[in-house]
């Protein structure tokens, strides 16, 4: 079966900007809250299990034939790397779909490792902000990208609340967005777990149906409340993500943005998009009315003036 873009339901048939503008709002509004595909897969990342071995990074590199790393994957000095005056740790790039960073648990002093990659949102901001529909949320849960239609505006990078997409800026002819695709083509659609999950020695990454993972996550918290922070990061953040996290230290101490909204980013544009049909419907009549009112009176007075002369 072909991948379904959920927005594909609303096929726009009329050309012309006004028709398009109306349809775009219809899409934003006609949609009831989207809870994600029922059989969406996901990954639960348990930070308490991650030992920072970077095997997932190596597996990802191999799976996707990414460029040779500058530093071997078994070299842990990368955890000491900081950028921009220490304000930024390593992040995903045009040669890495995923990276693991080390944080220090301020209370216990023990290191905490956190893997980052695309979280595969239920209602992704990259997808909804893309004006050429280069992104697709597959029914399996992956958010995949089609470089063949991408114009390179990088709106998705601006929109991504997790700052995941990277761009191959140094390519003159084929620049494109580079990000984790949940191993969609090579594994996920064949029913296999992503390479990183399979490689993880600790099963810090648990692969399964998103709804089952939510159950598992809450069960882990319930059965060991002293160990875990009582929150499943990604269950509701920005409308829910396919990749979710459990942690033993407060999420904001290990690089998570805990200020994110709990509804899709797309919702933020609705107050404006609601205004679009009003403008299209009301403006022409209103301004033509203004025009008639303001010019008819004037023409008459102008005539009178000229007559008087």
């Amino acid at each position: 079966m072909r991948r379904i873009s959920r927005r594909g339901f609303f096929k726009v048939t009329a050309a012309g900007s006004s028709a398009l503008a109306i349809s775009s709002t219809k899409k934003a509004f006609g949609m009831k809250e989207f809870k994600g595909y029922p059989d969406s897969m996901g990954v639960l990342v348990d930070l308490t299990r991650c030992i920072g071995c970077r095997t997932c990074e190596a597996a990802c590199n191999k799976e996707h034939g990414l460029p040779e790393p500058e530093i071997p994957f078994d070299d842990f000095s990368v955890f000491d790397q900081v950028f921009h005056d220490g304000k930024r740790k390593r992040r995903t790039s045009d040669s890495a779909y995923t990276v693991v960073n080390r944080y220090d648990d301020t209370s216990s002093g023990a290191p905490v490792y956190r893997k980052i990659q695309c979280n595969h949102c239920n209602e992704p901001a990259c997808l909804t902000s893309c004006f050429v529909n280069a992104y697709t949320k597959t029914k399996e849960g992956a958010v995949i990208y089609n470089p063949d239609v991408c114009v390179g505006c990088r709106m998705c990078m601006v929109a991504c609340p997790f700052r995941i997409p990277a761009y191959s800026y140094h390519s003159a002819l084929h620049p494109q967005i580079i990000k984790c695709n949940f191993c969609y083509d090579t594994r996920l659609k064949k029913g296999k777990p992503p390479a990183c999950v399979e490689a993880c020695p600790q099963e810090a990454l648990t692969f399964g149906h998103r709804k089952t993972l939510i159950k598992i996550a809450h069960e882990r918290i319930r059965s060991d409340p002293d160990k875990y922070v009582d929150h499943v990061y990604g269950e509701t953040e920005v409308g829910g993500t396919s990749w979710m996290y459990l942690s033993s230290v407060p999420f904001d101490q290990v690089g998570f943005d805990t200020s994110l909204q709990h509804h899709p980013i797309l919702d933020n544009t609705k107050s404006f998009l609601g205004f679009v049909p009003m403008v299209l419907g009301i403006w022409p009549a209103m301004f033509m009315g203004f025009h008639l009112l303001s010019t008819r009176g004037k023409e008459e007075t102008e005539k009178k003036v000229s007559e008087n002369k």
């Binding site: 909804t128 893309c130 239609v149 991408c150 114009v151 505006c153 761009y167 620049p175 998009l273």
Partner: peptide, 28 residues
């Protein structure tokens, strides 16, 4: 600024991301 400026017309004729605000900006 665009990575692939030769695809400037794509949002008009090739692939429509109709839910995007940028689509509205582009068309308008």
């Amino acid at each position: 600024d665009l990575g692939c400026p030769w695809r400037l017309y794509y949002p008009m004729f090739v692939s429509w991301g109709t839910a995007a605000v940028l689509f509205l900006v582009g068309w308008h």
